[in-house]
Design a protein around this nucleic acid. Sequence first.
DNA 1: TCCGATCTATGACGGACGGTCTAGTTGCTT
DNA 2: AAGCAACTAGACCGTCCGTCATAGATCGGA
Lengths: 204, 204
Amino acid sequence: MEILQAMPKRTDAKEHLIAAAVRLFRAHGYDGVGVAQLLEASGAPRGSLYFHFPGGKEEIAIAAIRRASARVGERLAARRARGEAPEVYIDGVLNAWAEELSASDYANGCIVAIIALEMGERAPALREETRAAFMKWETEFAAAARAWGMRETDAESFASAMLGAIEGAIALSRAKQSAAPFAHAATALKALARDYLAGSGPSG
Amino acid sequence: MEILQAMPKRTDAKEHLIAAAVRLFRAHGYDGVGVAQLLEASGAPRGSLYFHFPGGKEEIAIAAIRRASARVGERLAARRARGEAPEVYIDGVLNAWAEELSASDYANGCIVAIIALEMGERAPALREETRAAFMKWETEFAAAARAWGMRETDAESFASAMLGAIEGAIALSRAKQSAAPFAHAATALKALARDYLAGSGPSG
DNA sequence: TCCGATCTATGACGGACGGTCTAGTTGCTT
DNA sequence: AAGCAACTAGACCGTCCGTCATAGATCGGA
């Protein structure tokens, strides 16, 4: 029997900390956010950080990536369950991101992408986490593509292109303070899906 | 008469500083690189930084973005002058980036994208610089597309999709330590170009 | 040829903040 | 009421970026 999970939880500081980390990291990047900001934003006391996350800032970032990965993954799974046509699905996913960006005045980016770009060999654990998050989302896209009747290898290629187009559109959108890049990305992805589904694939 | 430009240049510290800034920022981001690292990498003394760049770190970052923007822009212009077919051009550009990433063990990213993602309202001057750099490259892509016979609006949409696909592929490539995302992005872009050039456009 | 004047270059310094840790307090359980 | 897990406060030292007084280099004028 697991009695550990019955341990009384006296505060929800850990939850608040993760939520603040997701929010701040995806707006300013890993190095752009100090633990002091994390603590202030979450309302958690200073000492709690290393109790809940003995690994310090890096462990918080890992938790934040996992949280974001799971949440976005759930939304994608829910959308896929609707069985939408390619055009509807692609527009839906891209529009959701466009809305996310414009609603936050182009402050909210993707925590996975920015940490992937910041972290080279500096923090292998973080990079591994970004890899896992990207793969999770790609798996979702590939599953949607297979449901449309796309061949396995084509579906994987499409999934990579779709994820890349989204992440790139986020970067462009932030720089230009405009949601237009998402529309252009959607157009490209719909053309790719049409090509792959037309028959022999885009190169034939 | 401009006599200022005739002032003797006793050291090339400024050049070294910009070169080091481009190299380090694109690997670790703006906040991931300290002034001390810039100085050590360039061999310049501390005081020289604030002589050449009174605006400090932010001004160096602006200079670094401009440098990168110009260098990449020149390469793109040179490639465009070759008058390559869409497939060749797209593969060429994407392969160049793939090579850049893999040759550096996936350390070298795009200084424009990472700074665009890191900087929200924190540094408007930097964000404006990223916007300008992205627009310059988009203009290049659009010019190439027009040369293939693409209509004006289609060319602009294609250019945005191409830049976004590249920047996204860089993020994925770093996370996965693989150049595969560039190949998938290239496939998508070739499909888009084919669609746009086929006649009435991808939505007709 | 010498001499200020002006431009260029430098590294030691400081206030602030970075992430981390240890020593201590709280409150549940028995 | 004792023991232990859950939690917290404050201070730690290193690094952060930017400033400063001063040293070196170059030039125009006498």
